[in-house]
Design a protein around this nucleic acid. Structure first.
Lengths: 139, 139
DNA sequence: AACATAGCCCACCAACTCTATAGACTTTTA
DNA sequence: TAAAAGTCTATAGAGTTGGTGGGCTATGTT
């Protein structure tokens, strides 16, 4: 399941997408409009900034804004950053791989099945961006 | 991600599948062979029993055994029971549905995308059984 | 220079979940 | 009736999640 943090991140990114190339947006504005706890949102936006998804400006007239176009930010990137692995098992994760203890991947039926699930999921989240989250984003 | 509990459950079910229709198997035997903490496994097996997947016999000569054939127990059933929702959002879950607060499902891009992910995942886990976990299970 | 603005950073906390264990109880078989 | 084996309840430690408080730093304005 996606954490609340992830859902907040997507809401914030959606909001910032609507304001893309319209200058910095205040954290407090996003928090208010999207009903996200302010200080919690602060952490999330900072994380998104450090990952190169957002950028910010300090002082008066400052705020947060997208560093790339909405259609250049994939869902997979955001999920991995805020939520963690997309795969259902560490031994099947591309970005958070850890080998199985007591289980040989070469002959593990669960492993193979979870690879299938991972690929089916990636096929979607790798090919969708936050632009697709906007109403009418497909037009 | 699948919890350790889920992974233990699958290991135990795999073991019991190999012994299908060969009489009850001791918890302690499964625990030892599959390297699962005994008391923890106890809880898991009991849960699987209450869900109608396993059955048991008490007293000497007792133990656990599958209540249905391995190919009659879907992955989805076990995951939902031991791990919880398969969907990435409550508002998209078939068995654990909860409506979104502050979000209209009718016009939520995230909702729609997560429906896709859910269906892609279900397409796999609804059509695979614990028989498929066994080596050579496809033959 | 001084001040207000707004993001940055650190530390902390409550609640919850996950993993695991302990111990007593019940049922069954020999 | 004694041993075997599952059943049940409770609990505890570790880690994660969701959230808050307060001070620091950079920036723009006057």
């Amino acid at each position: 399941m996606l954490s609340k943090k992830s859902q907040y991140a997507f809401k914030a990114l959606t909001y910032l997408s609507e304001k893309y190339e319209q200058g910095p947006v205040l954290i407090s504005e996003i928090a208010k409009k999207k009903k996200i706890p302010l200080k919690f949102l602060e952490n999330i936006l900072l994380e998104l900034k450090k990952a190169g998804i957002l950028d910010s400006k300090k002082g008066k007239g400052g705020g947060y804004f997208l560093q790339k176009a909405p259609d250049q930010i994939t869902m997979a990137t955001v999920i991995r950053l805020i939520n963690g692995p997309i795969a259902m098992l560490p031994c099947v994760s591309l970005y958070f791989y850890e080998r199985c203890s007591n289980c040989n991947e070469k002959v593990c039926g669960l492993h193979d099945m979870m690879v299938e699930v991972r690929d089916a999921t990636l096929n979607i989240v790798d090919n969708r961006t936050i632009k697709d989250l906007l109403v009418g984003g497909k037009s």
